[in-house]
Design a protein around this nucleic acid. Sequence first.
DNA 1: ATATGCGTTTGATCTCGATCAAGGAAGATC
DNA 2: GATCTTCCTTGATCGAGATCAAACGCATAT
Lengths: 249, 249
Amino acid sequence: MAAGATHRPVRTRCADCPIRHRAVCSHCESQDFEELERIKTYRTYAPGETIAWAGEHMPLVGSVVDGVAMLSSTLPDGRRQMVGLLLPSDFVGRPGRATLSFDVVAATKITLCMFNKSEFERMVGRSPHIEHRLLEMTLDELDAAREWMLLLGRKTAREKIASLFVIMARRDAELHRNVPQDGLRFPLHITREAMADYLGLTIETVSRQISALRRQGLIELGDNRMVHVPDFAKLIDQSGDDADGGVLI
Amino acid sequence: MAAGATHRPVRTRCADCPIRHRAVCSHCESQDFEELERIKTYRTYAPGETIAWAGEHMPLVGSVVDGVAMLSSTLPDGRRQMVGLLLPSDFVGRPGRATLSFDVVAATKITLCMFNKSEFERMVGRSPHIEHRLLEMTLDELDAAREWMLLLGRKTAREKIASLFVIMARRDAELHRNVPQDGLRFPLHITREAMADYLGLTIETVSRQISALRRQGLIELGDNRMVHVPDFAKLIDQSGDDADGGVLI
DNA sequence: ATATGCGTTTGATCTCGATCAAGGAAGATC
DNA sequence: GATCTTCCTTGATCGAGATCAAACGCATAT
């Protein structure tokens, strides 16, 4: 970086790095980025493959580069609940913890960008900014988990499906910054089973509700699992949430 | 502290401090404790009183000294879901965030120990250990929220009630370190409505399931809202979870 | 004593989503 | 091209929990 670079926070984005959206000084922290770059490795998993089991020792942390992974939890009799959806740029792993609390499973073909956890932690120990960023990200995840508790505990099947589509649409939009024209389009990578596990429903109910939304013209399913939402506000109406602020974020 | 105090981490507990269970060096960090002591204030709320509204600017952080508070979320049409139960020693507030995401409501008469948020944050900025501890606590809350997602999405009414009792019993036991003799005893402060909001049920279903557990001798309700669990393992059996390790933690 | 109010319990009935069952669509594999 | 296999859809039926309704226990107020 040129001499005389100002000591001012800048917001950078790096989908391949566990610490994304860094709002720290790029000048004094650039060496962190470089070190992260040096130690990173990529790994790809097939759909359905378990990336890590709950309770397992997990020597890596990282982030999703491409594809979708699920955090899920299973009761002794096999009932399963997804407790987190990991989309591109999401953090994977538990800094400062030896083991995972939940299974991590690839929902689609997925590529992760991984770092050795102890090396990452040593870096964290040297740089309080990274720990601060980790805290921010964890608070965001906690908020998302709690929003999901409202969905699981109090929403109807119809509202659950609509909410899922709203969330997927928003996540896709913030990733691609595409300007909506004749409505929104986004890919629905995950299977009916994954949706059911996420929403606390059965696949039959998921299928029926999607059919119903389709019959009412709220969504259209195209090729390659693309979903087209002609009127996003109408979909939000079905989600049970406040339509605060209208479209997208 | 005597001269020659060793530079060794000790685990201390301070129910009145937001940073509880500190596993840091008591020698070099004692000034943090002292500063926390200096700026703390107490405040008591009546049952049902709203401590803070979602979206509100919250200039304080702190922790529960005595009583129970609820974090809850409400849909536009009034359906409510509790997304967190704040028991004595739990942290309240969002360090580094301007506003709250959820309502904070006193479930019982409750006493909080509060700190000015910006003063607290200034302290956090000076001491990376505190931020580290905050991250740990937030990760714990995230795990708890995700456990609860499994309950909300996949457990039956019976299992939900049993799980709640198991959690309350464990929380009480870890607070009082009472040795179980003829089973466990703990106070059930919250109303049927609060339980229903927590479990994603109606008060009628909560009442019926509690009556059923009582008829089967799994729990007994005594005076002053005390619950007696003659055989904790049998209660865990009803919760749907693995009976891993048996009694208590 | 009676009234008022709140939390709780219990009963009767209904409904939404689960369960059981069958068939269809689109790739893979041979 | 035929046959799996996997995922998805749709129909018929069932049942757990919601809803509607009434009454009880217990406190405080009148």
